[in-house]
Amino acid sequence: MDLKFLASDRVEAFVSHLMQQKTVYAPQHTGKHSVALEKVDDPAAVILDYGRTMQSVKKFFLPPRDELLSFDLTDHSFTPAAVEPLDAILLGIHSYDRAAIDRLDYNFSQGHPEKNYLTRREGVVWVGVSFEPDEFHFSGSVGISPHETAGFDAFLTRVREGYLVEVLTDAGRELVSGFELPPAERPKPAPGHFHQHIFLPQAKLNEVMAASYNNEIWAEMAEKCVGCGSCNIVCPTCYCFNVEENVDITVTGGTRERIWDGCMLREFTEVAGGEVFRGGLAERQRHRVMRKFKYLSDKTGHPWCVGCGRCTAYCTAGISIVSIVNRCVSDFEERHTTAM
């Protein structure tokens, strides 16, 4: 692999170079403590060394609020919402978020492929960046290294004086062409160590989770959980949505919109007439975790959790998905050793 070097003091110039080619979205501060992926207007505002954004790149392809159509109440006609390819450079993306997009791609392509999502997905050039695992990251446990380059067109690996640049595809090559990058003088360093691990070998995923359906952990978590749904809403592989009608104040028209929804929310399974199919917080917590580690994995062979740590980092009650899964694993192993 051809490794180049981007010195820290040239990052701004590099961002400017990218901005000349396409719109660039990259991590930027939105508050003293928060970083979000936003459109870049000022190259100096880009932050490549960050823990995590609250929302992943998902928001560009499946926006939190997404108009599906607008309607005219006077003649009952409608106009489909214009959906455009994002056609942009996504800069400074962590490997787990790229892996999450593979999962969303699967969801929106299988069965009935969805035009809205798939159209927006077009024209994206991916520039990844390595991350230093913090107290919440555990993507290593689901097979995603901080240096994983799969799915990226180019990848930046943080070193002390700057970044090592890997060009991975033709699109990546085009991106850096015209910007002089000297060859790197040293190889890629080893990725940083994770502080969080789930001890669930992928081969045993199905077996362990299947045995955990009646674990007491769900009820225990229900004691701590307030059911606010934050864990769903920040998850990069959650894609559930609700649909709402908005009527203009003139009462002559309006829009039909889809809005992110979450299985931790009480109304998620409520049908007209009032029946709620997963009424308890324990059942909802189980469904959330099983979706990540069993239900969708059974179909595809891949865990639907990418180890970004968001659900734990943004849980005010301090509920940790790592602890939940590890508890399932240890209870499973205990039962199996005692059985022998």
């Binding site: 749904g229 809403i233 943004y314 005010t316």
Partner: peptide, 11 residues
Amino acid sequence: CVECKLKENEC
């Protein structure tokens, strides 16, 4: 929290 996270407000 749901609406706050949809807007990506700093928590």
